[in-house]
Write a protein that binds this DNA or RNA. Structure first.
Lengths: 220, 220
DNA sequence: GTTTGGATTTGTGTATCCACTTATCCAGTC
DNA sequence: GACTGGATAAGTGGATACACAAATCCAAAC
């Protein structure tokens, strides 16, 4: 479980941040759940202060919502907002892949193959499909060599991960998108940045409607 | 001076946040400046706690850098990072304008004309060129009706604004880009979302090298 | 003149405390 | 039985206190 922020200091605030982030990612803290500073502070053995500071950071990332005197709740996304996140992801990851394309080498492609194979195995190593899927996308983006871009993309992934997880848990088939990822790799191998960008944009935008529909139906 | 975050609560933390944000935007707190919680707390008549929480939010937005036990400094951008911000802006604002294009109506265009005219006047109403320029871009994006997208774009503007301001202060001419903005409006009037997106992307990317070169020369 | 080590100062990180706001519950009323 | 209002509980926001870390300064040694 990696963090979003660059450096990993050993402060209590950092620990609280990770703790809550992990809870949101894994689905322990579902959207709408109220987060009570004192409870979380007790869980990890500290006072409320660092926890509150962690909340502030999380609120900026859009992961929780803080209303004055009303406490902190895990942010939920409306159907529209899920669409929006996918739209933003499509252009940001499109940019990242466009910049990354000229940089891919043989090592990159063999690693991508490995990640793809790992994605198809069922839940070994503790990571579930959603996590492995994210790792695939993040590996693609990492070759862009754009730290800020990569971080922004990572944040968007965290936002939608809980929904993806619920969706896949309810869906009959574990998503047949693996073939699609193979196609992406082939496009990248061709080495055309613009084509690669278009492929990624399309790939991301195509996932959105199904997830949004599921969330709309489940009743946010 | 508008805030980035959506709702404006009357908490001390919010006040501290705005105070520091304003300081960074206006150039009072230059990149590299150390921000001492106690000093800022005294300035606005509160204790250090809310100020610290404001710092946490600002750090997530990339506006300040917090190192454990080393305090908080205003974030500075390297030449590469300035490029990166412009790259990200180009695709995000491109997306926003693409989505906005079908929504523009007569009112929108007359407001855009007004903003453009205001941009050409020299510093009336307290706002400088950089602020008015941002307002023009933000108005364009606002018609996309995508709150998260709009907020992300606003954050990027805050990041580079101080540099733009220093740059324009040193440059001989106040930037001849006004004509370019007129061209943008004409493109939007044609009503082709893809063309509009491409125009904005190009416009934004073209500004980057000059600013980056200036910052590199000035010696960050 | 430069370097080293230690006192001093400054500032940070967290816990605790208190005031105040909001939520909950319950009894009384219609 | 549903509604109202007030007591009570729960929780939040902010201030203060204190322990600790880092930076600074200065003097002694080389």
């Amino acid at each position: 479980m990696q963090t979003i922020d660059a450096f990993s200091a050993s402060t209590a605030e950092e620990e609280a941040y990770r703790h809550v982030l992990k809870g949101i990612r894994t689905g322990r803290f579902r959207p709408g759940t109220r987060l009570i500073p004192e409870d979380i502070a007790n869980e990890i053995g500290m006072s409320r202060m660092p926890v509150r500071e962690a909340f502030r950071r999380l609120s900026t990332e859009g992961l929780v919502l803080i209303r004055p005197n009303r406490g902190c709740v895990v942010a939920g996304l409306t159907t529209d907002e899920i669409y929006e996140v996918f739209e933003i992801r499509s252009v940001l990851e499109g940019l990242a892949v466009r910049l990354a394309t000229p940089r891919f080498d043989a090592d990159a492609f063999s690693e991508l193959d490995r990640l793809l194979a790992r994605m198809q195995t069922n839940g070994e190593g503790g990571d579930d499909w959603v996590t492995r899927h994210r790792q695939f996308h993040e590996y693609l983006c990492s070759y862009s060599q754009r730290p800020k871009l990569i971080r922004q993309i990572a944040r968007l992934h965290v936002t939608i991960e809980p929904y993806l997880r619920i969706w896949l848990h309810h869906a009959e088939k574990p998503l047949s998108a693996d073939e699609e990822h193979r196609v992406i790799i082939r496009t990248l191998e061709a080495g055309d940045p613009i084509a690669a960008e278009a492929t990624i944009e399309k790939h991301i935008l195509e996932t959105a409607p199904a997830l949004a529909a599921f969330v709309a139906q489940t009743g946010r």
